[in-house]
Design a binder for these strands. Structure first.
Lengths: 109, 109
DNA sequence: CTTGATATGTCCGAAAAAAGACATATTGTA
DNA sequence: TACAATATGTCTTTTTTCGGACATATCAAG
């Protein structure tokens, strides 16, 4: 039962906080869309649709949370993203929020 | 900027994890729909719609996360909810998840 | 030379969710 | 006695999101 609860929570999280998931991965190590999808699979067992990821990366760059540069190897192109200070700020705020949530829980136990 | 990030995250949490928000409040202290709405406002500054809360409470009871009894004072009726063991299990799993998320962050810093 | 993997992008119909109205009853206060 | 607060419920319309398809190109391996 607990295992299925966990799966459900992870799934809901990856749906509703996909931007945060992406920001975290990119902040840990600059990478491109395709690698983000693969990382999410190996690290968290989450299957991300590329049809969701690429528009998200573009919008995160548009709103200043990420910046990118195109890497070219031969004729092969990939767009490598890294977190901006604004992006880092955002996930730090997110982690602060998680801490607050947990503190409330700890007090009650 | 950080303040607006926080507001945004709190808002998104209350939207996407409304069931968990409700379970947490009810677990801390058994209460009824109307009070949940008021508590969410004073504690977190979140305005919940009663049109969302009452159907949610019914469905959480239907799926065994909450149980309720009707309290009657004179002609005044209110339905008081408390968390079931299943409901408690669920939020514990949620807190475990939050802990995991934070641990990943701590390692990287 | 074809298949699978890498790589990025758009778009549309269906499904789900959110906002807000409609509905009703009690109680306290001005 | 009218208004605000307490208390719970449904329902419909609008908005958002999701899954999956369509599209294209490079490269490695069998």
């Amino acid at each position: 039962m607990v295992a299925s609860f966990k799966k459900q929570i992870v799934l809901r999280f990856s749906r509703n906080f996909l931007d945060i998931l992406v920001l975290r991965l990119v902040q840990a190590e600059p990478m491109w869309g395709y690698k983000i999808i693969k990382k999410a699979e190996t690290l968290f067992g989450i299957k991300l649709r590329h049809g969701a990821i690429y528009p998200l990366l573009n919008s995160l760059e548009g709103s200043g949370f990420l910046r990118s540069k195109q890497e070219i190897q031969g004729r092969r192109k990939r767009r490598v993203y890294e977190a901006t200070p604004k992006g880092t700020q955002f996930i730090n705020t997110y982690y602060d929020f998680l801490n607050e949530q947990l503190q409330m829980h700890d007090i009650k136990e």
